[in-house]
Structure formats: C-alpha cells, structure tokens
Simulated assay, not measured.
Amino acid sequence: MSRSILKTLSKTLFNTDSFSAFVAPFNKALPHTSSDDFFAAKVTHIFDNNDEIFTLSLKVDSKFYFSPGQYVELLVEMNGRFIKRCFSISSSIEQLNKHNTIDLTIKKQISGKVTPWLRQNLALNTPVAISQAKGEFILKSKAKDMLFIASGSGITPFKSLLMSHLASGELKQVTLMYFERGEKHIFVKEFEQLAQNYPNFKLVKVNTAKQGRLSVALLNKYCDDFTNRNIHLCGSANMITDNTLLLLNSSVARTQIFSEQFTSIPIADLNLKQDRIINYLKSNKTVSQVKEEQNNLLSVSQSNDIKANYGCGIGICHECKCKKHSGIVFNTKTQTYSDNGEEDIQLCISIPVTHVSLGL
C-alpha cells in the first residue's frame, strides 16, 4: 500500500498524519527500533547539574537532526506502559555531528511521577526513543541584536542556541539574562567560556532572591537598548506571560518577542478560575479571557474570527482537533485535565484553565 494511501486512511480513521503516530503508545518494540515518527536511542551518560536538574546524554540514530532551540519527545517504558515527555535539547549541533549524541537537561518535578523516575531508573545503555525534533524556538533571523531571557530550566535551549550559533559567527550582539533563585544557575562554566571567547556575547546572572524578577530597571541596567533587539523568552507559563506583558508595555513590538514555555504546572497548584491568555500562533492573535468566562476553545475561536474546523460540536467527530502547544485545558467530556505540553485536543470540549497556545 502506498504511503499516500496509508496517510489518507490514517487521517480518516484516526485523525493523525501517520498510522505509526497512532499506534506508537501501544508498540512495545518502539524504544528499541525506529519508526516514521520516532528514532531509537540509548543512554550514554547521565549526571546531576545540581540537586534539582540532571542531564541525559543519548546516542541517537544517524538520521536524526535538529535545529538549535528545538525539543524532542522522550519515550520510555515506565512500569509496563509507555510515557512521553517533552524536553529541550541542550547540546550543540557540533556535538551531534561529531559524536552522534544529544543532551537533554531535565528538571525533576518534586510532585511529578516521571522526571524523578527517569533520574532513578535510566542507566547506561538503557534503550529509549526520541521523536523528530520539534518546536519553533529557533533563530529565524540573525540580523538583529538579541536579548535572551531565561528562568530556571528554561535555560536549556539557550545553551544549544549559543554554543551552535556563536561559533559560526552568525550572531551580532547577544545578551543572556539568566534568572535563578539563589546560586542554582547551571552551565555557568560553559557560558563564561563563551563570553571569554566571543566579545559579542554578554552573560548576566540574576539572583532573584536578591535582585527580584525581570523589571524595566534590570533591563535598563544590563541591556539598555532592549527595545531595539529581538527578545527570546523561555521559562514557566507565568514567567512567559508576565514578561511578555512587561515588554509590550515597554514599547517592544510583539513581532520582536519569541517564547517557549518550558516547565509544567502541577494540577494541585492550579488556580482553576483565573484570567487567561489564548495565543493563536498561526493567526498571530492573542485573546484574553477573564476568570468568569468558561467557554470552550471552539466558541472562543469563532467569536474572535479565528478559522477553525468543526463538526458535531460535542466531541464525537474530531473535526475540531488541533495542536495545543502549551497550557492546560479541561476536557468536558472526560472530566479530566490535560498535561501542560504539546498534544492534540478537541476545541469543542476543551476549556482553557491556564494560558494556552494553539496551532491556529
């Protein structure tokens, strides 16, 4: 059967672009073999960056490739079932080309089930699988000076970006403002070496316990021409939202701001009735919802002239399925909350609980 026929059949039956994507969670051989959507990999090294963060080095398939700033889905067998989680690649393109390895730097979620298990159970030569590289947190234009703003484990894609692009001579002036509580900054030696080797790179470590979070005062102190730069943000959902609003209110154009949410929000910590922002990535539109509004995402999209497919409106036909890139939604059909990362959702039965980014 031809690939085009298989794709059409898969789209009709399962509303996915490939059959392997549908069966992947059920295919017990997947961590040991490659498929159209996943590559076989194995653990070559694992070490602790600090008491909260560890780095996993993986030997990957020779066909695997990524652009600095992207992430992968890591697929592992955990207690008899397959689990997928998204992690940014923290290593350089040079490392991939020379050694066929990549690094995933992972924060252990204290109340999480998966990330602590990964650190405790993965060992040398453990077979895993990784997806094709995903995400749009890449440097689409290198012609302007840049400001990178990271908090917590949101630093990981910036390490890949800086180590890959500074050496190539592609970047102009780059300032990295790295926010972390106390002295828990990681990759400090690597960043300091980059600052020594490349005069166009400036590292600013911010101790939030002493200096606070991002503010106009800190921006003016460490990067006084920030309004003229392309600004990349990576961190928690609240960090992205708060800092984006701060930048917009400081005369930074939305077209200058690029972001990727990196950390998840435990369900137990959710404020289920809060003001929310729905970010439509393809339409380049942002919609605000006050906490009193509890409308599903299909009605929100239609009310704001966002083009979205739809059919039955009750969660049966899957015509309104779209990609949720980040944020948590409540499924009114299953009465469950989604994960915080990338996944397919049905707009007609999904109510935004946190800030949400959609592929519409």
Score class of each variant (00 low, 15 high):
Asp36Asn: 05
Lys184Leu: 10
Pro352Gln: 04
Ser299Phe: 11
Lys282Gln: 10
Leu176Val: 07
Leu358Arg: 13
Glu192Asn: 11
Asn304Cys: 05
Asn331Arg: 11
Glu183Trp: 00
Ile102Tyr: 06
Met163Glu: 14
Ala268Gln: 13
Gln256Met: 07
Lys11Glu: 11
Ile277Tyr: 09
Thr208Trp: 02
Glu180Ile: 00
Phe66Cys: 01
Lys221Arg: 14
Cys320Ile: 14
His355Lys: 12
Asn125Glu: 13
Ser350Leu: 05
Leu270Pro: 08
Phe179Asn: 04
Gln302His: 10
Leu347Gln: 09
Ile316Trp: 03
Asp103Asn: 11
Val114Met: 04
Leu176Thr: 08
Asn79Asp: 14
Gln346Arg: 08
Leu298Gly: 01
Arg85His: 07
His325Asp: 06
Ile106Leu: 04
Met177Asp: 00
Ser35Glu: 05
Ala217Val: 09
Arg276Glu: 06
Thr105Leu: 03
Phe158Pro: 02
Asp103Leu: 14
Tyr280Gly: 05
Ile46Met: 10
Asp51Cys: 01
Phe82Leu: 15
Ser34Asp: 13
Thr255Gly: 00
Asn331Cys: 06
Ser4Cys: 02
Leu194Lys: 05
Asn238His: 07
Ile265Gly: 12
Asn220Cys: 03
Ile231Pro: 12
Val43Trp: 15
Phe226Ser: 13
Asn228Leu: 15
Lys98Ala: 10
Ala209Glu: 11
Lys321Gly: 01
